[in-house]
Amino acid sequence: MSGISIRAGAVVRTLAFIVVALALCGIVFELAGYSALLMLESVVEGAFLRTGGWAQSLRWALPLFITATGVAISFRCGFFNIGAQGQFYVGAICAAFVADVLGGAPAALVLPMTFLAGMAGGALWALWPGYLRLRSGTDEVITTLMGNFIAALALVYVTSGPLKDPSGTGQQAASPLLPAVYRISDSQGISPAIIGIAAAVALAMWVLVNRTPFGMLASLAGRNPTMVRFQGARLWTLGLSSFLISGGLAGLAGTIELLGPTGRIASGFLPGHGFTAVLIALVANLSVLATAVVSMFFGGLASAALYLPILAGLPAAAIDIFNASVALFITAKSGLLDRLLRAARLPT
């Protein structure tokens, strides 16, 4: 009974955030001379009401969801892995290399190998900050954040060097478009395959978090590592696993972008993906189910962002302002932040 009422309270609070964030955005827009109401209308229309709106929102929401559940796992375990963006890029780069090397082989071979490479790449990019954190207490916020920049630069190098598209226009460095046989969706974005992958991830992560000793111990360790260590848990195993899962899922999202809607990797593509995923995980209070719902919301925003200039004459950056104000309220939400700060100070 009380469990349900606590959860209901959390939902109400989260909704309250979003409403306040919207109101704050509205004020900014009114001050800048735009109509806040028009913006709201066009966001809703762009995300869900126009024809194909739902499909477009899903196209953005599903990769975000996959990355965000990964972020949530590391947060649950008490590690503030904010390197999803870098892990997403490194995953996509590794996947692109494998797809390139295996080019010409049957899709039944290329696709699994590409997925594997993408997940391994993302996991690798989370492994070293995780190792440093557990080995010597290096702050994972700093390392994962720096990892994002390194990965973004690596992407520039790869797309303008080894994997450069010879027929490219030169405006944006990018790899060649993958042949249709290796694609899991067309450029419009959404396909049964991607929905299937997201559903599988959702199920697996829900079970992992709610029905395994790993999930329960990781969240206990996130709240009080000392107690879990006293009971004999190996924080190394819990911590590294959560970093690896977290990075692996970001890498999976990168691979989906490569094989799905984007069809290639390009320097600086989807620059806000990992950060939005962090935001989603926090708004969803690290719950898998809530992450799905919140992802849909932010996916809708991302989709509407592209639509705003056409419909309302508003810059697409309007959505960034909204994201930023949500982030502001999330950081003000003391409970979670306190917890992460406390976890960061405790020895592992």
């Binding site: 992992l208 395994t212 000793p213 329960m216 969240s219 107690m227 009971q231 195993t237």
Partner: peptide, 18 residues
């Protein structure tokens, strides 16, 4: 969760618990 932790640690990390 506090009460279960000792028991959870006696099981394999990736097994099913109710």
């Amino acid at each position: 969760e506090n009460w279960s932790v000792r028991e959870l640690l006696q099981k394999p990390l990736f097994s099913f618990v109710d």
